[in-house]
Write a protein that binds this DNA or RNA. Structure first.
Lengths: 224, 224
DNA sequence: TAGATTGTTAATCGATTAACAATC
DNA sequence: TAGATTGTTAATCGATTAACAATC
């Protein structure tokens, strides 16, 4: 009876709370209050409680949240109780690095399929994954029932590859190509445009340079 | 007389408008309306106009925006009229890939410095950048007046490296480490936590699997 | 001039925060 | 019980969208 629309940002924060819980658990702590949790990232404690309350009552009044229990629940909510096989398309610099990237495997995501359009690459092994020709994408992804894909192809190819992925049954795409993908309803695209992120930083840098830089640390650093 | 607080999201969209303008210009188009621009990403045309109006009056009533002119202005606003030298710290899989990544150089960002704590790596050349020992970070970054850094170190090292970068005068950090960085006011951190992004997708996937998948494309795909 | 589209103000929507009764 | 902290409602804030006079 609680199918309220859950904000995207809430889901993102859930992952961050989870990371925090893992750290606390490693420190041997067993419970934590919304206030403690919030302080870790400069958030508001009401927001933490509200985010969690979307999904159930996980806390104990007067005490806070039991870490092991909340961690379990967040993992359940985020779908991390299972391992996910992920397909990656576009084995260039970035694609290869992501295949090898530890940050993924550790968290239950395994890049088990890799595709590329370059015939020179197909058959090669990167990490422990063999590169398959993109012509085989639809049947292969479909057969393995892969639902999550990482897209690291050039912008010009992104839409057509996305179409293939959707056709193959993929419902979630992590898109590194600087392109606006059009996908059917029900398919979720997360864009990670590194160039856009850098431009935001460049904006900030010219802005602060103009406004005057921060005056927060000691007069002069290093040698010079 | 317009120092209204500009939303973060507006700045991000500016980059996206710019990308769109580049595409349109390549197609030989010379002007575009806010409505056309908005339709490209499913945005509202009022939002496009408002985003642009934060920075000046770039449009022509009854006509729209001249592409060359708007492009010029967006580049100016985003600080893209200059080249940026970027320092990267942590030359692992991801770091190496980013050094080689074409998406950066193309847009006026050049990773000109790379640092790593592993003595076995220092001196090695990746792409066309020589890896420097992290012990030399502060004087080197300071001397070269580098303002933007990419952080691809393990989470455990992220905060201490961020401190070094700030000490060296960096004002903007693109952070790939799954860690919440504390930096002085005036320093901008953009977090790109790939694991968090995947978890969001995993959430979406279990959710849609439960609710029932989309019914948007033809009954059965591929061969199977 | 008539048609189109901007720049901007006002209305709406959604997300964050404050406040507090419920309760461990 | 007294103290603390949740879950939740109401108030605030900010961002998106609608509407329209200005004007090319």
């Amino acid at each position: 009876m609680k199918p309220t629309k859950i904000p995207e940002k809430t889901v993102t924060r859930l992952s961050i709370y989870l990371r925090c819980l893992e750290e606390l658990e490693a420190d041997g702590v067993t419970s934590v209050s919304s206030r403690q949790l919030a302080e870790r990232f400069g958030l508001n404690s009401a927001q933490v409680r509200k985010d969690l309350a979307y999904f159930g009552q996980f806390g104990v009044r007067g005490l806070g949240y039991y870490i092991a229990e909340l961690k379990h629940n967040l993992e359940r909510i985020l779908g991390l109780k299972q391992d996910w096989e992920v397909a990656l398309v576009g084995v260039g610099n970035l694609g290869s690095a992501l295949i090898a990237y530890k940050g993924f495997q550790a968290r239950g995501f395994k890049i088990g399929l890799a595709f590329d359009a370059d015939p020179a690459k197909t058959g090669q092994v990167v990490g422990d994954v063999q590169i398959t020709d993109i012509a085989r994408l639809v049947p292969t992804v479909h057969r393995k029932k892969v639902k999550i894909a990482v897209l690291t192809v050039p912008a010009a190819a992104a839409q057509s590859v996305a179409d293939l992925l959707v056709e193959a049954g993929v419902t979630a795409i992590l898109n590194f190509a600087p392109a606006q993908l059009t996908v059917p309803e029900g398919v979720k695209v997360q864009n990670v445009d590194l160039s856009v992120l850098l431009k935001t930083l460049s904006y900030h840098t010219v802005r602060t340079a103009r406004t005057g830089p921060q005056r927060t640390d000691p007069p002069t650093p290093g040698q010079s």
